[in-house]
Design a protein around this nucleic acid. Structure first.
Length: 470
DNA sequence: ATGTAC
């Protein structure tokens, strides 16, 4: 018995040596060469039957690994060309974001997609990207800040009822900003999301529970904010339950799932990237988890928990401010804009990822903020099928953080704020209004995706202190 | 986005 006999049977690479070793053991046991070759053929055809033990166990295990690697190579192969997708506001979108969307549309699991007018470059899927996949969820198709969302409360008093100084001290007292921040134990509020059994269903969630419990109700950093402003309703709408046209005091917040969501995202994109070692480099950050597999199910559960947790953060922020004001909101609206949903697309249930995109099914309310000093809008979705029922999640950056720090000065930002009568607590040059696209342009490009119902003008804004104060 | 990295 030699290598030639083995390779003739079709064994390759390391399998040849393993087969030879096993064959020698069988020869020593007095088995004839013909019988051994029959056995080897059988191992090759049915490796799973030999995996359990015996002289062929190592060979069988290796063959199964080879098979899996081969399958992985096949199923990780990108399409030769991206599937077609529609772009809203292409004149506002940089080529880098388009290039990222093109790669996403080459994934074998992709079925449909769209690019929103606030789109700009992100990790994996661009911000403002909408991607529908079949039986697959992409952690970086949702984003690092799972469940990042908006919430608006409109109060039954005039905007002038709270002075700038008062709004300022309310924000300083009742909100917390910055990476890693939490509320002191005595200031913490409870929330039903912290009592969900889901936290006990995965070791990772058990591990992250304490962090989540201490950080609930906080706002983090980057583009997250809490602001007092004026909500203007120009025209009554039956969906707004008898809210009369007029100007109201309102609170608008942008917040996410804090350290908890970030760790969930980091963990599962790691799992996904290990699952597809053969995936092209350019698509590595788009690694997916099959939804019918164990890690895919675990991510789906953790992602949805992070989504509920992020909304709970907003609820606490608004509850604290409402209590301090002594007012009950007339109207509240909220929406997640970093999440994946099961959605029927062209008659098929797909996984629709919105990474910096507002759900805009027909009749659904949503919130699209501008910059720290520009208006945000209460909108109603029109359910545009080619946009996969989505809209932009904001104005979108036109300057990256570093570019903003290089090209803008404090006084530019201060003048912009003064012009619009906006008071800012914290904030950084990297969040300068001039670093964002004009929200009016972005809204104008998506008139077929949403109707604008109301306008929110910021007056007193709190953000985290940036790398360089304004 | 997050506190400073499986």
């Amino acid at each position: 018995m030699n290598g030639k006999h083995i390779t003739k049977l079709g064994f390759e690479g390391k399998a040849v040596g393993l087969a030879l070793t096993a064959a020698k053991l069988r020869e020593d046991a007095g088995v004839s060469r013909g019988d051994i070759l029959d056995e080897l053929q059988s191992v090759q055809n049915y490796p799973e039957q030999y995996r359990g033990g015996g002289v062929y166990a190592d060979l069988a295990a290796h063959l199964l690994e080879q098979q899996a690697a081969q399958q992985s190579r096949q199923s990780a192969k990108l399409r030769a060309a991206p599937l077609p997708y529609r772009t809203w506001g292409a004149d506002l979108i940089d080529p880098g974001a388009h290039a990222q969307m093109d790669v996403a549309m080459q994934l074998p699991v992709s079925r449909a997609g769209a690019l929103m007018p606030d789109a700009h470059v992100g990790y994996g899927l661009p911000i403002g990207g909408v991607l529908a996949t079949e039986n697959a969820v992409i952690p970086y198709g949702v984003g690092v800040d799972i469940g990042c969302s908006m919430m608006l409360s409109v109060f039954p008093v005039g905007a002038g009822n709270v002075s700038t100084d008062e709004a300022r001290s309310l924000l300083l007292k009742h909100t917390r900003f910055g990476a890693g921040v939490a509320f002191d134990k005595r200031d913490r509020l409870d929330h039903p999301v912290l009592h969900e059994a889901t936290w006990k269903e995965q070791p990772l969630l058990r591990h992250l529970f304490d962090k989540a419990a201490t950080q609930i109700g906080t706002s983090g950093s980057g583009n997250h904010f809490v602001e007092f402003g004026t909500f203007t309703l120009a025209q009554a709408d039956p969906q707004l339950e008898g809210l009369d046209p007029g100007e109201y005091l309102a609170v608008l917040s942008h917040s996410g799932s804090r350290g908890f969501g970030a760790q969930v995202a980091g963990h599962f994109t790691g799992v996904a990237q290990k699952l597809w070692p053969q995936l092209d480099r350019e698509a590595q950050k788009l690694a997916w988890l099959p939804l019918d597999g164990e890690p895919g199910q675990a991510y789906w559960q953790a992602m949805n928990l992070a989504g509920r947790y992020a909304l709970a953060n907003h609820e606490q922020i608004h509850a604290r401010l409402a209590r301090a004001l002594g007012e009950k909101p007339l109207l509240q609206a909220q929406n997640s804009h970093n999440l994946a949903w099961k959605q029927v697309v062209n008659g098929q249930e797909l996984i629709v990822h919105r990474k910096g995109a507002t759900p805009a099914e027909a009749g659904r309310l949503g919130l699209i903020p501008g910059s720290m000093a520009d208006p945000g809008y209460l909108v109603r979705g029109k359910g545009h099928p080619e946009a996969l029922a989505s809209a932009s999640h904001g104005a979108g950056r036109q300057l990256g953080r570093k570019a903003a720090e290089r090209s803008l000065a404090k006084k530019d930002v201060q003048a912009y704020l003064k012009d619009r009568g906006v008071t800012l607590i914290g904030g950084g040059i990297d969040e300068a209004p001039q670093a964002y696209k004009r929200i009016e342009d972005v809204i104008a490009r998506q008139r077929d995706l949403v109707d604008v119902l109301g306008e929110f003008r910021p007056r007193v804004v709190r953000m985290d202190t940036g790398s360089e104060d304004v």
